[in-house]
């Protein structure tokens, strides 16, 4: 595997160019609906309860009661303890159940325990697993360990899709983010994902672009399509559109699908709902006029 370097100045310049695209009219509405259909509606709190998970699942199926034509989200993403409930509530909807396993968010547990956690969430019904990489080993330069662990976890997933969280905020440099992306792809990740949402900075446009370039290079070399999931801090509809512009102009049409692109987000859905309502009614609704997810 060739080590690819990333230069900060021009990657940031290219990233900024996506935010200067002007998305209007029909393109905006289409983009908003696309973003909604790509969202992994997420709650990852210590205080998560049955009540909260139920609300989340309801929101996932129908983002706004007054606009039943809006698409449902791609998946809900919850802690392992809530997988069984989410599966029960979403049975037959086509909405995927994702769970963060592998001692999320730090990953600081013995590998065997992390593997066991993965087997457990899959057994409980999760069809998508969001794992964290071993940043300790990665930053120490022990790449074989990082790659070996991802491979083991992929195997433990069985048929479930594996999203590999790099926690880019802890890797710091674009060079390291690119290297981690290449490792995760090489090890068999179905998706690569920026962040847990527990560390700042989380997803940014330049970081996501670096990861999209890794996905593109892998596709050009092998023909295999790996998915991308920026997560953490994407709360505005407009920001989501900027991400979609980046995907369209970097990877092309094939990646504009929930099968290959996801947003990990919680409040994004409601901002999209408000934007769509505005497009349809000409009025902005207050935050309290949109149901909590």
């Amino acid at each position: 595997m060739r080590t690819v370097t990333v230069d900060r100045v021009m990657i940031e310049a290219r990233a900024a160019s996506f935010t200067r695209r002007s998305i209007k009219e029909a393109a905006k509405l289409q983009g908003l609906c696309m973003a909604l259909s790509m969202t992994d509606l997420t709650t990852l709190e210590g205080k998560d309860s049955r009540e909260r998970i139920s609300a989340l699942c309801r929101k996932a199926r129908q983002p706004a009661a007054d606009m039943p034509d809006l698409p449902q989200v791609a998946a809900v993403c919850v802690y392992p303890n809530h997988v069984a409930l989410a599966c029960e509530l979403l049975a037959g909807t086509g909405i995927h159940i994702a769970s963060v396993a592998t001692a999320f968010p730090s990953g600081q547990s013995p590998l065997e325990l992390r593997l066991e956690e993965v087997r457990q969430v899959v057994a409980d019904g999760a069809d998508e697993v969001d794992m964290v990489i071993n940043r300790g080993a990665f930053l120490a330069g022990d790449y074989p360990t990082v790659q070996g662990e991802i491979e083991a976890i992929k195997q433990a997933c069985g048929d479930a899709h594996l999203k590999v969280i790099l926690e880019t905020g802890e890797l710091e440099t674009f060079d390291k983010i690119r290297l981690a992306s290449d490792l995760a792809i090489e090890a068999g990740g179905d998706f690569i994902k920026t962040s847990t949402g527990k560390i700042q900075p989380a997803a940014t446009i330049p970081v996501t672009l670096v990861m999209l370039e890794a996905i593109r290079d892998h596709f050009l070399a092998t023909g295999k399509r790996v998915g991308m999931k920026p997560a953490g801090g994407i709360s505005k509809a407009k920001t989501a559109l900027h991400y979609l512009v980046m995907v369209k102009e970097t990877l092309g049409d094939d990646w504009l699908t929930p099968d290959l692109f996801r947003f990990g987000a919680s409040s994004l859905v409601n901002d999209i709902v408000r934007q769509v309502r505005w497009k349809r009614t000409g009025n902005y609704t207050a935050n309290y006029d949109v149901s909590i997810g």
């Binding site: 695209r21 209007k24 596709f219 092309g252 049409d253």
Partner: peptide, 12 residues
């Protein structure tokens, strides 16, 4: 392999 830059989502 080649990437497709077509009209799935066109900017208005």
């Amino acid at each position: 392999q080649s990437l497709q830059f077509e009209h799935k989502w066109d900017y208005a």
